[in-house]
Amino acid sequence: MNFKDYIKWDRMPTTWCPGCAIGTVFKQTAFALAELRLSPEEMTVVSGIGCSGRAAGYFNVDSVHSTHGRALPVAEGIKRANPRLKVVVFSGDGDLVGIGGNHLLHAARRDVDLAVICINNATYGMTGGQMAPTTPAGAKTLTSPHGSAYAPINIQGIVTSNRRHWFARASTFHIVHLQKAIREAVEWPGFAFIEVMGFCIENCGRRLGFLSGHEMLIKLKTDFKLKAGPEGPLGEFELGVVKNDGQIS
């Protein structure tokens, strides 16, 4: 299979802004699916609301563009009804962690066999750049013009608090790690969550002083480093995979 078989070419170009991080994640997902040789009949893409929710319509597979925050329950229903399907959830941080935070808690607790790709741009991008639960402390947004007063939510802590877990953090600059993580997440028999550190240039980056999308891409390169050394929880600016197959160590 070629990655071009997973994309609806008549709907290109996408509606995303120039240089948007979602386009890179979308492309890497198509590459990863092509490497796994999954046929379009045996997989489903579910997305929530937001800019990243548009991706469900661009994949040339059966897909659902669900309501705000409810991507995980819809995906869980699909998986329970037809366990043969590989279900990929493609959504953003405002949808999965903000509005649908409760569903994330319980889908991770029940260990549903899903691969969740969460694009974390640290803001509510589509609605104009309001402060999200993932906004770093001190970051200026539309609703926090003097800087966010609160610490961001710890997604790694939520997912890895269950004994059996699979969590990865990737960034849109480190694409080899991102593609490997997507492949591993789709193959993992349980709840697999990838937090992809992305950016929003139009509604978040311009308030922070960035002029173009590729400046933010280079910022990801300087900020984030791949975790070296023994396995264990990832630090705030580390990329890697944390997993446990349920064995008591």
Binding site: K4, W9, M12, P13, C17, P18, G19, C20, S212, G213, H214, L217
Partner: peptide, 24 residues
């Protein structure tokens, strides 16, 4: 299928219909 691209070098294909000039 994908729109036809322009050959700008011996092996580089650029599709102006898809390009958003983001300079990445």
């Amino acid at each position: 299928m994908a729109k036809p691209g322009k050959t700008i070098d011996a092996h580089i294909l650029w599709t102006p219909d898809y390009c958003k000039h983001c300079s990445t």
